[in-house]
Amino acid sequence: MKLILVTASLLLGLAAISNANAASIYAGQAKAEAVCSQCHGIKNPSAEAPFPPLAGRDADYLKTALKQYRDKTRQSDIMNAIAGSLSDDDISNVATYYARLKP
């Protein structure tokens, strides 16, 4: 029992650190693959796709844009819906992941 408690508190501690700390690019990668890459690709969207590339874009720009889509100050049916499902952490993680990629 004690072991479980110690483990749990350690895990909580870790979670708190990762929250407080810089974004997790691993979480960002998972989110990007599950949510963004279908349209924007990972390194590049399709040559035929009407979607902008995200890889290598400025992280702050990506964060601002996603937050604007989320609070609907920037209009797009599909992006308003998708960004609406993202938390602050998700946005930070995804933006950091894409910003680090070379297109």
């Binding site: 599950a34 279908q38 349209c39 399709s46 035929e48 796709a49 009407p50 979607f51 599909i78």
Partner: peptide, 16 residues
Amino acid sequence: IMTGSFDTLMPPFYGR
């Protein structure tokens, strides 16, 4: 059709 189907080859036709 708009969003495509994840984990398959079905692409998003939104915008196309």
